[in-house]
Nucleic acid binder design. Structure first.
Lengths: 222, 222
DNA sequence: CCAGGTCGGTGACATAGTCACAGACATTTC
DNA sequence: GAAATGTCTGTGACTATGTCACCGACCTGG
């Protein structure tokens, strides 16, 4: 219950809350820390609070019976777990799990407070609904990719996404496979092909982009 | 603006609205009719209203560039388009489309009214959030199926789902393919195999279940 | 150095998707 | 009712993706 309110600045959507609402929010919520790798929620582990991320990232993924995984989306600092929370607040069995990818610091808003803010603040509603719709739009994109997308293009796209600043990526083939919902062997073969064509240099636990332009062209043109 | 309020009975979640809220809802919303096959919304066609379905079904699906389709979910009488609506109310580009599968009658709640009800009625919030979470849970299931599921089991499951009362289904292979997000040829081959094993009898535009038990066993046991 | 774990490569096979095409059936048109 | 047209289905050949069973390379901590 510390009077720490600095974190409000992290959420542009909250800056225009009324004085009263801000008070309500800061007084009844708590800043929590979650260790890297910890499971925030999953099947049989519903959340009791709405989370606003201050620091770190949360990965939401699905795991199949035979061990294959697929990443559904990530929640970054400055974003909320609106979707996951809403899902769990009013409904039953959950099929995905949320993992702290790094050390995570977050504001936990208890359910009654969340409900009150939804009721009383149009700004807060806007924040929550926008978060929802972005996530859902993204889920639609995941479905489209998985159902209709070519794996080589999806992998090339992922490599570009993972190397924004440097051309060096630290990632294992298994991690890439989990991102895309495929098997490691498939990633192995596609990477071999990319390497044969000179697009990348692949080593144990790391990949170096050598011809970003050609990778991008591949994604664009198919 | 007709004083028609009978439809409130269709939505158990709304029966406990206060007198005032009920009035607000019935007075500012309109009952609309949509022809079979009409597109309710899609890319570049955002909805301006929140829909509560009185009659008929709405199919929400995605279409890929090369013409393949996948059904994401259906909205039935007594349900709401909460997800689709929310998606569009506060966010940009849409990737899916909603089609009236039959003649559809629905209550269209204008956005300001929707917003006011969310603000002022805990019951209405409950209704909307529950609808959200059910849809999202279902989307997660779709992703799991598409990413990890075997096509023969998914098809068998779909056949069972489509034949609740009678053992006779009127459906083309193309329709089944669109339900599952696969190609017609794949459906053709799987149906041949089911027929060879005596599970079904397949004809032009129709399928007859002959050994439902074995189909169900296939789905259960893999 | 070596023991055990993680990571990556590969051949053989199974499943799924694409392409091209042909035949069967249904409906319209004359 | 015969022909023309459109829809629905079946199939062969091929490519892409996923599964299984391995093995060898590398890494880390005794």
């Amino acid at each position: 219950m510390a009077g720490e309110t600095d974190w409000l600045k992290m959420f542009p959507g909250l800056t225009r809350l009324s004085e009263e609402m801000r008070d309500r929010l800061t007084r009844s919520s708590m800043v929590v820390s979650l260790a890297e790798g910890s499971r925030i929620y999953g099947p049989g582990q519903a959340p009791e609070a709405f989370l606003l991320l201050l620091e770190g990232t949360v990965r939401v993924q699905q795991v199949s019976e035979n061990g294959r995984e697929i990443v559904l989306y990530r929640v970054h600092a400055g974003e909320s777990c609106a979707l996951t929370t809403a899902c769990l607040m009013s409904y039953e069995d959950y099929l995905a799990e949320a993992i702290a990818e790094t050390l995570v610091r977050a504001v936990a808003v208890p359910r009654p407070t969340f409900d009150e803010l939804i009721a009383r603040s149009a700004e807060f509603r806007q924040l929550v609904f926008t978060a929802f719709s972005q996530r859902v739009t993204n889920l639609f994109r995941v479905i489209e990719d998985v159902a209709f997308g070519r794996m080589d293009l999806r992998l090339a796209d992922k490599l570009i996404e993972l190397s924004p600043g440097s051309d060096q990526i630290s990632v294992t083939q298994q991690q890439l496979a989990s991102e895309l919902g495929t098997a490691r062997e498939v990633v192995s073969r596609l990477l071999s092909e990319f390497q044969r064509r000179g697009f990348i240099q692949s080593g144990r636990g790391s990949i170096t982009i050598q011809r970003r332009g050609e990778l991008e062209a591949l994604v664009r043109m198919g």
